[in-house]
Design a protein around this nucleic acid. Structure first.
Length: 727
DNA sequence: GCAAGGTC
């Protein structure tokens, strides 16, 4: 009897094997793939693992991967960067060959069910998916695993169908519409540009476009703030804060001139600040963005590496909870071996109770250190690791206390106010070095005191448009709207940058991004909003309730996409030319000396980005971009070309220089070439030059006169020529 | 080349 258990990822395979038998042995298939095996009561059990989805959809009929007739193929055949999947598929194929019992032990959700189902169906084969039993667990603790193993259920075919339908619908809409947009551009300009649209990326872009339009159409309103300066570095604000009436501002300003202040009230109060809550992926990404300026993707990569190394827990979790079963004592015992951490852990209360957040996750707890101390971390991993450890420690720490002083002043019957804040009890703040602590001085004031006013200031300001999103705040917005999943949000945003729809840390939408949304709003409105996701959800719920079949859902989807494609194709030329125009506009970086526009271009031949002119081929001005250079918005004061920021080797920080590396250098400074004689053919100067094959001599009349020779041969040639002439 | 979803 041979039983094969298939889990979703290598880490779960290990946990499942160890929970089911103390005799479980780690084995290797090839050099890279681990699996687990044990034998009890004459039954051999092999615990294998997938690595997420092993199979991907592709077109069953067309070579260009388009259409509606789809099939599942091994992911490594159609997706780049999926090469590592190959060995896992082979391992499952090989090691399950003689199995007579199959167990599906992937995460208990729609995607997990499909991952295991496809592994059984396509890798194990022989109808394994129909014979298999299903383990249902919510955490990978020994108790849950054993319980699930002892009470196995059938595979939920509704979950399987939901998963398949979701994958297919995303393919229908995403692949076909993206391709139609690119085809439209090709039809009008014969240019190839990468364009894409999808159920998640398009609404995400749409959120950014809406914000962009709000900012563009914002009309700032002037207002005034009146401030009073006094001893103890006090700057008190007039209680009305923003005064929109200029007359009134002026009146207050005038009336306060020369007057002193009376303290009418002093209020000091203490507030409690609870420790922070444990990190889920979004929380970690947001904090790393604030503290280190890391993009969510960068944080995710570092956290994944820490997890694979065994130093921190599974990162793709939405949980903000730390169950006691994790064994806090053991984790801290591990961390104690680090001198720096020990100082902080020593302070913790005897009873370890974490301050938790509200969010939960069926499969994983919040992100936490495992207690295994790392070595050889990259700088990014080191930063993220310390952040996770200190957050973990502070979650268990005491409350901190903040003292706030609020002082009311009366200046010639106008009321002013100022506040000061200081931490009165450090508590958890002592263990969380990433948060700035308030430490204002409290001036010794009491009710009835007089204060000399040194100056009254009136500041004219303007109301500001809503702030731009950054990557972290956008991820939060996507979480709120339930767009994408915790594992994909960072990738989706990275994709929008890749496509050149958006730009900058404070996200700006480029003309191409705005235009993609304009086009799609016209031809398939529900793709630009969350409506498509909600429509999928509604239909998949109906599928689970047996109110609709998978085939019906897919037929509806196909009908909808086909009608969109027809509309796009009927207006192909117009859509294409408009998109291409905005694409070019998106690449304008400045003005060329010929009056044309300088564009960012890509040379296929050199595989490099460079700057060229929109008047090419009439204007052949080009500038190369040094590696890692960023084009800035500012222009060079000398020549008007855009400035770029570059990083020089061995230098700290970045340097801002003109796009033209010869800008400002006078011709004479470029070392005028040396005159070495007169041209024997035209009588003009001969100049010493250096070329690919060493020094040579050329005529200054080039290209009208093309005389040239090697420097060492010059004397001989001149002699020959003069002899020829004298003959 | 184009999606979104798992994962190393």
């Amino acid at each position: 009897m041979h039983e094969v258990i298939i889990s979703e990822k290598p880490k779960s395979a290990e946990k499942i094997a160890k929970a089911l038998s103390s005799k479980a042995q780690k084995k290797k298939y090839g050099r890279k793939i681990s699996y687990w095996e044990f034998e009890e009561d004459g039954k051999r059990t092999t615990v294998l693992s997938a690595v997420g989805h092993l199979y991907s959809l592709t077109s069953a009929t067309s070579r260009d991967r388009l259409g509606f007739d789809l099939k599942w193929v091994p992911a490594y055949e159609v997706e780049k960067n999926s090469g590592y999947v190959r060995d896992y598929v082979y391992a499952i194929k090989k090691l399950s060959k003689d199995a007579d019992k199959f167990v599906h032990a992937c995460d208990y959700d729609v995607e997990g069910t499909l991952i295991g189902y496809n592994a059984l169906k396509y890798a194990c084969g022989n109808n394994a998916e129909a014979k298999a039993s299903r383990m249902k667990f919510s955490t990978l603790t020994k108790k849950d695993i054993v319980e699930a193993y002892n009470h196995m259920i059938d595979i939920d075919l509704h979950q399987v169908d939901s998963g398949i339908a979701r994958h297919m619908l995303d393919y229908y809409f995403g692949m076909n519409i993206s391709s139609a947009l690119m085809k439209a551009v090709r039809s009008s300009s014969s240019s190839r540009i990468s364009l894409s649209a999808g159920r998640v990326q398009t609404p995400t872009l749409s959120i950014l476009v809406d914000r962009e339009k709000e900012i563009q159409s914002f009309i700032p309103e002037p207002y005034w703030q009146i401030k009073a300066k006094s001893d103890f570095d006090i700057i008190a604000n007039h209680v009305e804060d923003k005064i929109f009436d200029e007359e009134r501002a002026k009146r207050i300003f005038d009336e306060c001139q020369g007057a002193d202040a009376t303290v009418t009230n002093v209020n000091v109060k203490e507030t409690i600040r609870k420790p922070p809550i444990p990190f889920n992926l979004g929380g970690l990404q947001s904090e790393a963005h604030t503290v280190f300026g890391f993009s969510p993707k960068r944080t995710q990569v570092a956290a994944q590496n820490l997890y694979v190394g065994g130093y921190t827990s599974y990162p793709r979790t939405s949980s903000q909870k730390l169950p006691e079963s994790l064994g806090f004592k053991e984790i801290f015992a591990g961390l104690l071996k680090d001198e720096e951490f020990r100082k902080h852990i020593a302070d913790l209360p005897a009873k370890l109770k974490p301050n938790e957040g509200k969010k939960e996750d069926a499969a994983h707890p919040a992100i936490h250190p495992t207690g295994v101390l790392p070595s050889n971390l990259s700088p990014d991993e080191e930063k993220i690791y310390r952040l996770i450890v200190y957050r973990f420690i502070s979650v268990f720490s005491e409350d901190s206390k903040l003292e706030t002083m609020k002082v009311d002043l009366n200046v010639n019957n106008e009321e002013f106010v100022f506040t000061r804040k200081r931490v009165s009890h450090e508590g958890w703040l002592k263990h969380y070095p990433f948060k700035k602590q308030e430490a204002d001085e409290f001036p010794p004031l009491k009710k009835g005191d007089f204060l000399k006013i040194h100056e009254i200031i009136s500041e004219e300001k303007e109301t500001k448009p809503p702030a731009r999103y950054n990557e972290a705040s956008l991820i939060k917005e996507l979480e709120k709207r339930e767009l994408g999943t915790k594992a994909t949000r960072a990738d989706i945003i990275a994709k929008l940058y890749d496509r050149k729809y958006i730009d900058g840390k404070k996200i700006e939408v480029k003309p191409l991004g705005v235009h993609i949304i304009d086009t799609l709003k016209q031809y398939c409105k529900n793709l630009t909003s969350e409506e498509l996701t909600r429509e999928f959800e509604r239909e998949l719920d109906c599928l689970s309730a047996d109110k609709i079949t998978k085939e019906e859902i897919l037929a509806n989807g196909e009908k909808e996409v086909r009608s969109i494609l027809k509309d796009i194709n009927n207006n192909q030329k117009e859509i294409g030319s408009k998109l291409y125009e905005s694409y070019q506009e998106s690449n304008v970086v400045g003005e060329c000396s010929c009056g044309g526009k300088l564009l960012k271009k890509y040379s296929r031949r050199n595989k490099q980005t460079f700057i060229g002119c929109s008047n090419f081929p009439q204007c052949r001005n080009t500038y190369s971009l040094p590696k890692g250079a960023n084009i800035l918005k500012s222009t060079c004061p000398t020549c008007g070309l855009p400035m770029i920021s570059i990083k020089r080797k061995g230098q700290k920080g970045r340097e801002h220089v003109c796009l033209d590396p010869n800008c400002g250098k006078e011709v004479s400074k470029r070392r005028a070439p040396e005159v070495v004689g007169k041209c024997p053919e035209c009588g003009r100067d001969l100049l010493k030059r250096s070329g690919r094959f060493g020094e040579f001599v050329g005529c200054s009349g080039f290209p009208q006169c093309r005389f040239s020779c090697q420097l060492k041969d010059l004397d001989k040639i001149l002699l020959e020529k003069s002899e020829e002439l004298s003959k």
